[in-house]
Computed example of a mutant assay.
Amino acid sequence: MKKRATVICRRGKRILLVARSQSKWALPGGILKHGEHLSDAALRELKEETRLSGKSAKYLFQFRGAQKHHHVFYCDVSKRAKARASNEISRCRWVHLEDISQLATSAPTKVIVKALGEKRSGSRGK
């Protein structure tokens, strides 16, 4: 099973999604290069796909999909930075968390975003 660095970028209640042409929306990210650290892969993939420079990559959790083992990171990006589709990505869009379930997304994207919401609400009372 391939390891994938998957990136969550948030601005308030919106999350960044990307898509290849003729493809479903997904979280930015990709497969690790040989010898690459997970956090480095997360920042590299974010930059390659959206031209956004993450300030850091904070490890959140992992999720095993059907084909890939997702290592999910939160990347903080400048509020003023514009996401621009790059490389194999043809579209990027900031989507309200509540709207993601209505979009055509990859199966892991829906599960990861749902898990993110559950982790957030679970930590509010602490």
Rank of each mutant, 00 (worst) to 15 (best):
T105I: 04
E98M: 10
Q102K: 15
F63P: 03
R14T: 14
I31G: 00
K79N: 11
I112T: 04
A57S: 13
Y59D: 01
E49T: 03
E88K: 12
G35Q: 09
K33N: 06
I100Y: 06
A26K: 11
D40M: 00
K55P: 00
R120H: 04
S53P: 00
S23V: 01
G117A: 10
W94T: 01
K110W: 00
Q62S: 15
L97D: 02
G122S: 08
S39E: 09
Q102P: 01
R14H: 07
K13M: 02
A41D: 08
S106N: 04
K55T: 06
K33Y: 07
K3A: 07
W25Y: 10
K2E: 11
S121R: 12
K3D: 14
R124P: 01
S90E: 14
V18A: 06
V18C: 09
M1P: 06
V95Q: 05
F63V: 02
K68Y: 11
A19P: 00
F73G: 03
R84E: 13
E36V: 05
R120S: 05
P28S: 05
C75H: 05
G122H: 02
C9M: 12
P108Y: 13
D40H: 07
K68V: 02
H69I: 06
K68I: 02
L16T: 07
A19N: 00
L43M: 13
A85H: 06
V111E: 15
A57K: 10
P108F: 09
A57C: 12
S23G: 05
H37C: 08
V95A: 08
S86A: 14
Q22C: 04
E118H: 08
I89R: 08
L103F: 04
L38T: 00
A41E: 05
L38K: 03
R120L: 10
Y74F: 15
P28A: 08
K33G: 00
R91M: 06
S23A: 15
E49R: 14
E49Q: 15
N87D: 13
G29M: 09
R11D: 12
G12V: 02
S53E: 07
V95I: 12
H96N: 10
G117T: 04
Y59I: 01
H70Q: 05
K13L: 00
T50F: 13
G54Y: 07
A5V: 11
I89C: 10
A42S: 06
H96K: 09
V95K: 03
S78E: 03
R91T: 01
A41V: 07
E118T: 04
F63H: 15
E48K: 09
G122I: 01
Q22G: 09
S86N: 15
K114F: 05
A19Y: 00
L38W: 00
R4L: 14
L27I: 10
S78H: 01
G29T: 03
E118I: 07
A115N: 14
A5I: 09
K82E: 15
L32R: 05
K126G: 07
V77E: 03
G117C: 12
D40E: 12
Q102N: 15
H37L: 12
Q22E: 13
K3P: 01
A57E: 13
R80V: 06
R4K: 15
T6E: 06
R93G: 04
L17H: 11
R44D: 08
Q67P: 01
V77T: 13
V72P: 11
W94H: 02
K114G: 03
A66W: 09
F61D: 14
I89L: 10
